[in-house]
Simulated assay, not measured.
Amino acid sequence: MHQRFTAEQLATGSILIALAVMGLKAAAWMMTGSVALLSDALESLVNIGGAVMAWFAVRYAQRPPDAGHPYGHHKAEYFSAVAEGIMIVIAALLILNEAIGALNRPSVADWGYAGLLVNAAAMAVNLIWARVLLRAGGRLSSPALSAGGRHLMSDVWTSAGVLAGLVLALSSGWAILDPLLALLVAVNILREGWLVIAASVNGLMDTAAPESERVRVEEIIHRSAAGAMQVHGLKTRRAGRALFVEFHMVVDGAMSVRAAHDICDRVEAALREAFANAEPVIHVEPEHKLEPAGIKPR
């Protein structure tokens, strides 16, 4: 079903899901007083902020190019993902503060399994939505949706570990497990925050498209640039959903401009058919610009 959703609809859904999960986790914490469940709820609070930022970023990134942004607004999603990563780190620091304080006052006297079941329901909702976001983020090449999906999956694993530990604490009476689990949650969240920030900063630095996409681009050029002598200097970069492709195409110097332009049109059409948001730029050169190595069209 998620394949019919647009990025904006998914971002809106993320806000609603985050609010629902936050409510469930807050209820679980109030039912138990567990600092580990409090830490889990605090992470969901970050999810709400991240979902709101992703919603704004996805809408802004869809704006068409204008005079001030001739290459489009695609990178707005990377800024959203960086901001979410920073929020994740802040949440981890807050959890560390709570956990360290609770080490001196561990208690499980008033706990019951009802609160844990509520938290488990929240975890199940997060798992389902995380899988939706990860698949849609890849399909739509959306950094904001992918970052949200990775964060939710981290939240799921955190919740699973917390629940397992708290069940052990209830059955064994080892109250110290509660703040210790909160410390582990904080470390895991710090790690996830770093990964989200690092991945997004790479996008802002104009890193090349993934290897699988570069191989596919080369194959498309190889079969669609018939009539050209060589293609070299291939460069790619991802900017959100946009794939920028730039290369030099060598043709016979006696070839007419119209014939060379027809080849360019054919290559561009093939690239845009394979990549919905491809932005190819082709520089045509005469035969004396041949390089020792390059792509030789069929």
Results as ranks from 00 to 15, higher is better:
residue 119 N to C: 15
residue 119 N to F: 14
residue 119 N to S: 15
residue 120 A to L: 15
residue 120 A to T: 11
residue 121 A to M: 10
residue 121 A to I: 14
residue 121 A to S: 13
residue 123 M to P: 01
residue 124 A to S: 07
residue 125 V to T: 05
residue 125 V to D: 01
residue 125 V to R: 01
residue 128 I to V: 15
residue 128 I to M: 13
residue 128 I to T: 06
residue 128 I to S: 06
residue 129 W to F: 15
residue 130 A to H: 03
residue 130 A to K: 00
residue 131 R to V: 07
residue 132 V to K: 00
residue 132 V to G: 06
residue 132 V to E: 01
residue 132 V to M: 04
residue 133 L to V: 09
residue 133 L to W: 02
residue 133 L to F: 10
residue 133 L to D: 02
residue 134 L to H: 05
residue 134 L to E: 10
residue 135 R to I: 09
residue 135 R to H: 14
residue 136 A to M: 08
residue 137 G to T: 09
residue 137 G to P: 07
residue 137 G to A: 03
residue 138 G to T: 06
residue 139 R to Q: 09
residue 140 L to R: 01
residue 140 L to C: 06
residue 140 L to V: 02
residue 141 S to H: 10
residue 141 S to D: 08
residue 142 S to A: 07
residue 142 S to T: 03
residue 143 P to T: 12
residue 144 A to S: 14
residue 145 L to H: 06
residue 145 L to R: 05
residue 146 S to N: 12
residue 146 S to Y: 11
residue 146 S to K: 12
residue 147 A to T: 06
residue 147 A to H: 05
residue 148 G to P: 03
residue 148 G to W: 02
residue 148 G to S: 08
residue 148 G to N: 12
residue 151 H to D: 15
residue 151 H to R: 12
residue 151 H to K: 14
residue 152 L to I: 04
residue 153 M to E: 14
residue 154 S to W: 03
residue 154 S to H: 11
residue 154 S to G: 15
residue 154 S to V: 05
residue 155 D to A: 10
residue 155 D to P: 10
residue 155 D to N: 13
residue 155 D to L: 10
residue 156 V to C: 11
residue 157 W to N: 13
residue 157 W to M: 14
residue 158 T to A: 12
residue 158 T to R: 06
residue 158 T to C: 13
residue 159 S to F: 04
residue 159 S to H: 03
residue 160 A to H: 06
residue 161 G to S: 10
residue 161 G to V: 05
residue 162 V to I: 15
residue 164 A to L: 11
residue 165 G to D: 02
residue 166 L to F: 02
residue 166 L to T: 00
residue 167 V to A: 07
residue 168 L to H: 05
residue 168 L to S: 12
residue 169 A to G: 01
residue 169 A to W: 00
residue 169 A to K: 07
residue 169 A to V: 09
residue 169 A to D: 00
residue 170 L to F: 09
residue 170 L to I: 09
